Simulated assay, not measured.
Amino acid sequence: MDVARGDAASAAPAAEPADTSADPTEVAPSSRGPFGGRLHSGNRAWWQELPTLIIAALLVTLIVRTFLVQAFYIPSGSMEPTLMVGDRVLVSKLSYRVGEIQRGDVIVFDGTDSFAGSGEVEPAHGVVAKVVRGIGSFFGVSASEKDFTKRVIGLPGDHVVCCDAAGRVSVNGVGVEEPYVMEGDAPSASPFDVVVPPGRLWVMGDHRSDSADSRSHLGDPGGGTVPVDRVIGKIVLRFWPLSHFGGLDDGTSVSGK
């Protein structure tokens, strides 16, 4: 039997042009890197993203810590009853960039070259201990032996004396009412009479009988006063423990003409 053979080209439908847009091997231009490499567009496992998140968090923490606020903990009783041992506080670094230091402010400062060699925290011993302390300091959960917390009593040029006829500290001849001083403590058990040099501060702890403050450093460089440019910032908040949460007495009664 004869079978008719048709022309293959005429018998079969004409082939349509290939649709390259559906080619799974192609990557859209927006999915290519700046040098032509392909980028992974699928969902990554959480543990693959974790290093990036940690680095980003550290960078944000560093920026905030450097320019805005820094967390500290209180390692001694020198500021009782205002601040208790173990309190966590936030220190504003903006306070004195947009404003001036005021009498009565509770500050954190670097005591290098003023309160030299007498930090309120024992230095760490050993490499591991120093690393742990460094990480803790970065996140505000440990203290540095060079950082101190005190209240500003005298500003540059002030004449600060203890004690006046009423047994009070006086600033420029004006007696200071100090309701924040530890109950039972005298304003000062040791007399002093100083004129605060330019660019420096006279500072004292609220627990006067348990504070190695400006009075204890009269023989050190600066005569017990602290350089203004060593001030880290003003304590604006206690955030831990929650039972102590809140702001501080700003010592508005500390005045002087």
Score class of each variant (00 low, 15 high):
residue 117 G to M: 04
residue 146 K to W: 09
residue 82 T to Q: 00
residue 99 G to I: 00
residue 216 S to Q: 08
residue 142 S to L: 09
residue 206 D to Y: 04
residue 100 E to G: 06
residue 63 I to G: 15
residue 219 G to V: 03
residue 197 P to T: 01
residue 71 A to I: 01
residue 216 S to E: 10
residue 158 D to N: 03
residue 216 S to V: 07
residue 120 E to F: 15
residue 80 E to F: 07
residue 168 R to W: 00
residue 169 V to C: 00
residue 88 R to M: 03
residue 132 V to F: 09
residue 33 G to V: 00
residue 87 D to F: 06
residue 80 E to C: 05
residue 150 K to E: 01
residue 237 L to V: 08
residue 240 W to Y: 14
residue 165 A to K: 14
residue 242 L to K: 04
residue 92 S to V: 05
residue 115 F to Y: 13
residue 87 D to S: 10
residue 143 A to C: 02
residue 66 T to D: 10
residue 166 A to I: 00
residue 158 D to R: 08
residue 133 R to P: 05
residue 240 W to F: 15
residue 248 L to V: 06
residue 140 G to M: 09
residue 96 Y to E: 09
residue 249 D to G: 10
residue 2 D to P: 15
residue 96 Y to K: 14
residue 88 R to Q: 08
residue 90 L to F: 14
residue 198 P to M: 11
residue 15 A to D: 02
residue 160 V to S: 08
residue 98 V to R: 06
residue 213 D to C: 04
residue 137 S to L: 14
residue 83 L to V: 04
residue 105 D to F: 01
residue 133 R to S: 14
residue 90 L to N: 07
residue 74 I to K: 13
residue 180 Y to E: 05
residue 174 V to R: 08
residue 20 T to L: 09
residue 39 L to P: 08
residue 148 F to T: 10
residue 46 W to V: 12
residue 75 P to D: 10
residue 165 A to Y: 00
residue 191 P to S: 08
residue 122 E to C: 03
residue 229 D to W: 07
residue 241 P to K: 02
residue 73 Y to R: 15
residue 46 W to A: 14
residue 52 T to P: 03
residue 240 W to H: 15
residue 184 G to V: 06
residue 85 V to M: 11
residue 195 V to W: 02
residue 141 V to E: 05
residue 253 S to P: 00
residue 217 H to G: 02
residue 88 R to I: 03
residue 151 R to D: 01
residue 52 T to V: 14
residue 66 T to M: 04
residue 79 M to W: 07
residue 231 V to A: 12
residue 85 V to C: 09
residue 29 P to G: 15
residue 256 G to D: 12
residue 223 G to H: 06
residue 146 K to Y: 12
residue 219 G to Y: 12
residue 84 M to W: 15
residue 5 R to G: 12
residue 17 P to K: 03
residue 6 G to I: 04
residue 189 A to T: 03
residue 140 G to T: 10
residue 175 G to K: 08
residue 236 V to P: 09
residue 197 P to R: 07
residue 204 M to Q: 13
residue 129 A to D: 09
residue 147 D to N: 14
residue 103 R to K: 08
residue 15 A to M: 07
residue 32 R to N: 12
residue 58 L to Q: 02
residue 215 R to V: 11
residue 191 P to T: 05
residue 89 V to S: 12
residue 75 P to H: 11
residue 78 S to Y: 06
residue 208 R to V: 01
residue 118 S to E: 11
residue 77 G to K: 06
residue 163 C to V: 03
residue 246 G to P: 11
residue 108 V to I: 14
residue 232 I to N: 07
residue 242 L to W: 12
residue 3 V to H: 11
residue 125 H to P: 04
residue 13 P to G: 11
residue 228 V to L: 15
residue 35 F to M: 04
residue 108 V to H: 09
residue 209 S to G: 10
residue 61 T to R: 13
residue 164 D to Y: 11
residue 207 H to Q: 12
residue 166 A to P: 00
residue 68 L to H: 03
residue 238 R to E: 15
residue 81 P to L: 02
residue 20 T to A: 09
residue 140 G to D: 04
residue 73 Y to H: 09
residue 232 I to Q: 13
residue 204 M to W: 10
residue 246 G to R: 06
residue 41 S to F: 04
residue 28 A to K: 11
residue 74 I to Y: 12
residue 100 E to L: 04
residue 56 A to D: 00
residue 222 G to P: 06
residue 192 F to I: 02
